[in-house]
Deep mutational scan, measured.
Amino acid sequence: MGKITFYEDRAFQGRSYECTTDCPNLQPYFSRCNSIRVESGCWMIYERPNYQGHQYFLRRGEYPDYQQWMGLSDSIRSCCLIPP
């Protein structure tokens, strides 16, 4: 099982949303994503809903700024857990 936490502000500040399963639409939970903490598993995150747009592969670790995962913007709208 994986676990990823999205934060609206840099350095793990602001409103957060924790996810443990695939989520095709993160828009209801936060308006922007400036930092991420991957506590377990590997995740693919996407800039648009329904697994569309630019995608980024994240391993376990801390990403205090969206540029840390080579993001082009602070828009993350869907995510899925990559099976081991």
Rank of each mutant, 00 (worst) to 15 (best):
residue 51 Y to K: 15
residue 18 E to P: 06
residue 12 F to A: 02
residue 2 G to H: 04
residue 12 F to W: 04
residue 50 N to E: 12
residue 33 C to G: 01
residue 27 Q to M: 13
residue 70 M to T: 15
residue 12 F to V: 02
residue 75 S to R: 08
residue 2 G to Y: 06
residue 18 E to Y: 08
residue 74 D to E: 15
residue 26 L to I: 13
residue 49 P to A: 07
residue 22 D to Y: 15
residue 10 R to H: 05
residue 15 R to Q: 14
residue 16 S to D: 03
residue 5 T to R: 10
residue 5 T to A: 05
residue 17 Y to I: 10
residue 43 W to R: 06
residue 14 G to L: 02
residue 18 E to K: 08
residue 48 R to N: 13
residue 24 P to E: 05
residue 62 E to L: 12
residue 15 R to A: 10
residue 81 L to S: 09
residue 41 G to D: 01
residue 75 S to K: 08
residue 65 D to Y: 05
residue 27 Q to C: 04
residue 24 P to K: 06
residue 24 P to C: 02
residue 20 T to K: 06
residue 12 F to S: 02
residue 71 G to V: 01
residue 38 V to C: 08
residue 23 C to I: 03
residue 51 Y to C: 15
residue 14 G to W: 02
residue 6 F to R: 00
residue 19 C to I: 14
residue 22 D to F: 01
residue 61 G to C: 02
residue 5 T to F: 06
residue 8 E to D: 13
residue 11 A to C: 14
residue 16 S to P: 08
residue 14 G to Q: 02
residue 19 C to Q: 05
residue 3 K to G: 09
residue 15 R to S: 14
residue 12 F to K: 01
residue 10 R to W: 08
residue 35 S to Q: 00
residue 52 Q to I: 14
residue 6 F to H: 00
residue 1 M to F: 14
residue 22 D to Q: 04
residue 5 T to I: 08
residue 4 I to V: 09
residue 13 Q to S: 10
residue 18 E to R: 07
residue 51 Y to S: 15
residue 51 Y to Q: 14
residue 50 N to V: 10
residue 25 N to P: 00
residue 53 G to N: 10
residue 23 C to D: 12
residue 1 M to A: 04
residue 21 T to N: 07
residue 15 R to V: 11
residue 45 I to A: 15
residue 22 D to V: 04
residue 9 D to G: 13
residue 50 N to L: 12
residue 4 I to M: 06
residue 2 G to K: 10
residue 6 F to N: 00
residue 51 Y to T: 15
residue 79 C to R: 02
residue 14 G to H: 03
residue 24 P to R: 09
residue 24 P to I: 07
residue 75 S to T: 11
residue 17 Y to T: 06
residue 25 N to M: 12
residue 1 M to L: 10
residue 40 S to P: 02
residue 2 G to P: 03
residue 33 C to Y: 05
residue 75 S to N: 11
residue 19 C to Y: 10
residue 25 N to A: 09
residue 75 S to G: 11
residue 19 C to R: 09
residue 10 R to Q: 13
residue 48 R to P: 13
residue 61 G to V: 09
residue 18 E to Q: 06
residue 5 T to L: 12
residue 9 D to V: 08
residue 18 E to C: 10
residue 51 Y to R: 15
residue 3 K to R: 11
residue 38 V to D: 01
residue 4 I to G: 00
residue 80 C to R: 15
residue 18 E to L: 08
residue 3 K to F: 15
